[in-house]
Simulated scan of single mutants.
Amino acid sequence: MQALIPAAGRGTRLGERTETRPKGLVEVAGRSLLAHVFETAIDAGADELVVVIGYEGAQIVERFGDSFAGVPIMYVHQREQLGLGHAVLQAEPHLDGLFLLLNGDNVFAGSVAPAVAAAEKAGVDGVLAVEEVSKAEAKTTGVLEHDGDRVTGLVEKPDDPPSTLVTTGCYVLPADIFHACALVQPSAEGEYQLSDAVGLLVRAGYDIETVRLGERVNVNTPADVERAARLVQN
């Protein structure tokens, strides 16, 4: 299975750490953020890494070259950072069939292989790794409506969250997600949200399931870097 890893952003909230380098090269416990993500993808069975680069992307190419731990890397350029849905669309020519998507700024404590295994079950079209958060935090990210393990709706940054179950930056998605991303309208901020595209699949009758994984840190701030370091060192 191929793994798509969006890593085009600068990470402005990381301050001076990203003034001259991309977010994916910020060090967590002595290794780059992307090295941790690549290892997570390979552990889950990825046989090719498709990496979306943008801000200072040449540094990522220079650091990793054409492979990581023997697994080939394909680079895709996102000229404008217009949201995760837009990043996914840039990679369409290089992906074939069901694929794993791992956000390039998420560090997981354990394996994401259970998400891949769940997606390979008969009748399942895709899987979202999810976690419970506070209602305040739910207002800042993609929130799920669900019936047991099945997703019935998905809304991005709602004022009144329908639940406190949210996406975690780990998805296993079918190739039809590209068509859905192409149909998505931009948000008020001009971004094309992947959650809106997944919501289109759900409304079209696709069976999108959820799975809960272990602890993870979404690295956005210096404090998150320290939290992620503690996570991988435990």
Rank of each mutant, 00 (worst) to 15 (best):
Q78H: 09
A118V: 08
L101C: 14
S195Q: 11
V37N: 03
P158L: 04
A119E: 03
R13F: 14
L89C: 02
L33G: 08
F178P: 09
F99D: 06
V184W: 05
K139N: 00
T18W: 03
R150D: 07
R203P: 03
R79D: 14
A129Q: 05
N234D: 13
G97W: 06
L200H: 15
E56V: 00
A44E: 05
L144H: 02
I177F: 13
G142S: 14
L128V: 06
G54P: 07
A41G: 11
E62V: 05
E56W: 11
A113H: 12
L101R: 05
G104K: 02
L173V: 06
V116A: 04
L100G: 09
S187D: 14
D96M: 02
P72N: 07
Q2I: 04
L201W: 10
G70D: 06
G123F: 10
N234L: 10
T168P: 10
V28T: 06
D159Q: 14
L100H: 12
K139M: 11
L102Y: 09
S134V: 02
G148Y: 05
S32T: 15
A228W: 07
C181T: 02
Q90W: 08
S67I: 00
L102E: 08
H36N: 03
H86S: 08
V211S: 08
R79G: 12
L101I: 10
L213F: 07
E145V: 03
A44K: 04
Q193A: 11
K135P: 00
V184F: 07
R227L: 14
Q81D: 14
F178K: 07
T152G: 11
V52R: 01
A41F: 08
I5T: 09
V202A: 02
D96Q: 14
G54I: 00
L95Q: 02
V124M: 10
A182C: 01
E62Y: 03
K139A: 12
F38W: 05
A115W: 06
E19K: 11
E39Q: 14
K23T: 00
I73R: 09
V133N: 01
G123N: 10
S163H: 05
K157E: 13
G110F: 01
E80F: 03
A69Y: 01
P22G: 10
E27N: 08
A228Q: 07
A7P: 10
F68T: 05
V26I: 11
L102A: 08
A138S: 05
F64K: 09
L101V: 11
G45T: 09
Q90C: 13
G142D: 11
E27W: 06
S32C: 09
L154W: 12
Q2T: 04
L95V: 15
V52K: 01
E120Y: 07
L144K: 03
E215G: 06
L100P: 12
E156G: 04
V217N: 09
L173Q: 04
I177M: 13
V76T: 04
A204V: 00
Q185Y: 00
F99G: 06
Q81P: 03
A129W: 09
A119R: 03
Q2E: 15
L14K: 13
V143S: 01
D196I: 00
P162L: 00
L14G: 08
V124R: 08
A109N: 07
T164W: 00
Y75H: 03
T164L: 00
R10C: 05
R212D: 00
G199L: 03
G70R: 06
A204K: 13
